[in-house]
Amino acid sequence: MNPVSDLIRNLADQYGRNRHNLLPILQGVVEQEKYLSEFSMTEIARELDLPAADVYGTATFYSFLEHKKMGKYIIRVCKTITCSMKGKNQIMLAIEDMLKINVGETTPDGNFSLLQTNCLGFCHKAPAMLINNEVYTELTPEKVREILSSYLKKKGVHNDN
């Protein structure tokens, strides 16, 4: 049996199989898989007996429910007003420079995806970013490089060379 199907079945067992359980299940799959593939959405539709189109329509409404393949770590840099005033562009440059990807892209090794997002609710500590569910605030280019280095050293993240 496909592991994603198992995951989906378990999530459905845990949350229930009604329409109002859809979001937690989508979130559960994204938590594990980082994104919702066509296969995942089909399986969810089947498991919950929902039209597949509705699953797709719902998932694409939410910016955290990615439907394109994402890296192991999704970096979301806040681009809203305060962060933007406080140097978000430099942060983006530092990340792009270090990971050699542009916004919207994933590193070839599949470790990092770089996205921008709207206000994270840390404006008093701008600029801010999320890496998966972890928040990092009062960023500077140096700080960002340190943070990314620590991720690069983490287990499971393999360096290209």
Partner: peptide
């Protein structure tokens, strides 16, 4: 279905 939101919102299929 309706998919995406904001200016990207569109009518589409699965």
């Amino acid at each position: 279905t309706v998919a995406h939101k904001g200016d990207q919102m569109k009518i589409t299929t699965f």
